[in-house]
């Protein structure tokens, strides 16, 4: 940089520009680095643990001394008729409940739209707080709440109905196999409705107010505003979340079903995660559990790409 000739000035400029640019790039990269590192440590490093799926691992004993099982844990799931039936049953439950939760994923959208239409700020705030609150209650507490409400011996509901003379024998609601899927979906809607609506409320506030004004000038009523402006305005958010939940189709949680399970509803409540827990983790069979989670990851990736492809096909935009 010491002997600059006059003709080189413009070239120097571009070089300076470039170095400035690359310095910015550097900076941005450095800013992102901690998060990349976090993602690496928490999402990629654990992939090393997949190796346990191929051994008979017992905690405390190093892997090199453990027995090598090959694909035993993968094939054992499907190794005979009864087991295949079990897997089919469990997957049916998983898909049914995931399907129901996909269907109910429009509820938070509707809820958010109606909530923003409410004019009284106090009432709006109160409703939002009360519906968001359940999200922070753990499932264990939700169950003890459910037990207080619905138990046979001294449950609130049975007491009320008995005292009103509407029934003459207490009902056993928790230990019943009717409508398990629906009941579980309702519990989870109750718990997550307000929380999931937050994202849509944010999306609604992001919609350009001029659109509403223009539509009003054109004579659009309230419901027309909602239908023609608000709904299309939050559709992109809705679809992103929908795609992500499709990718998570097979992991529909575990705690909820774990706390609500009992012998009577076991046939329908047992989703894949719970099944793996019941036969794998309960007996410290970590290798089997790892094998299943490995398969699940693969299914999730396939589902995500399929959904993304469909989105590209129908809506002309994709998220990956």
């Amino acid at each position: 940089m010491n002997n600059i000739k006059p003709g080189q000035v413009s070239r120097l400029h571009t070089r300076l520009d470039r170095s400035l640019l690359s310095r910015d790039k550097y900076k941005l990269f450095l800013m992102a680095l901690p998060f990349l590192a976090l993602a690496f440590v928490f999402s990629y490093l654990p992939l090393y643990g997949w190796i346990y799926a191929f051994y008979d691992y017992r905690p405390g004993i190093p892997l090199k001394d453990s027995e090598y099982m090959g694909f035993y844990w993968f094939t054992s799931m499907f190794s005979n008729d009864v087991r295949r039936q079990e897997i089919v049953r469990v997957l049916t439950n998983t898909f049914a409940m995931s399907g129901l939760s996909l269907l109910t994923s429009v509820l938070p959208v509707a809820f958010a739209i109606f909530l923003t239409e409410i004019r009284s700020t106090f009432f709006k705030r109160m409703v939002q707080t009360l519906t968001t609150l359940p999200n922070f209650i753990s499932w264990v507490l939700v169950y003890s709440f459910a037990f207080m409400l619905f138990s046979v011996d001294n449950g609130f509901l049975n007491n009320v109905l008995l005292n009103l003379g509407l029934i003459d024998r207490p009902m056993n609601i928790l230990a019943s196999d009717s409508n398990t899927w629906l009941a579980m979906t309702l519990w989870s809607v109750w718990k997550t409705l307000g929380w999931s609506a937050i994202m849509y409320i944010a999306a609604i506030t992001g919609i350009d107010q001029e659109l509403y004004e223009a539509a009003k000038v054109d004579g659009a009523g309230r419901f027309r505003l909602m239908w023609h402006i608000t709904v299309p305005g939050i559709m992109p958010t809705f679809f992103v979340l929908l795609l992500l939940s499709i990718a998570n189709f097979i992991n529909n949680g575990f705690e909820q079903f774990y706390v609500f399970q009992n012998a009577i509803n076991m046939g329908r409540i047992e989703v894949l995660d719970l099944y793996v827990y019941n036969i794998g983790m309960m007996n410290s069979n970590f290798s089997f559990s790892t094998a299943v989670s490995l398969l699940k990851s693969i299914v999730s990736i396939v589902l995500l790409f399929a959904a993304n492809h469909l989105s590209k096909l129908f809506r002309g935009e994709n998220i990956i």
Binding site: D56, E67, M69, Y72, S76, R83, E86, A263, N278, I279, G280, M282, N283, N285, S287, F288
Partner: peptide, 15 residues
């Protein structure tokens, strides 16, 4: 391992 796994699967059914 295989007996153990069978045991827990059967146990679940029996329960």
């Amino acid at each position: 391992a295989d007996i153990q796994q069978k045991l827990s699967e059967i146990g679940k059914v029996i329960k």
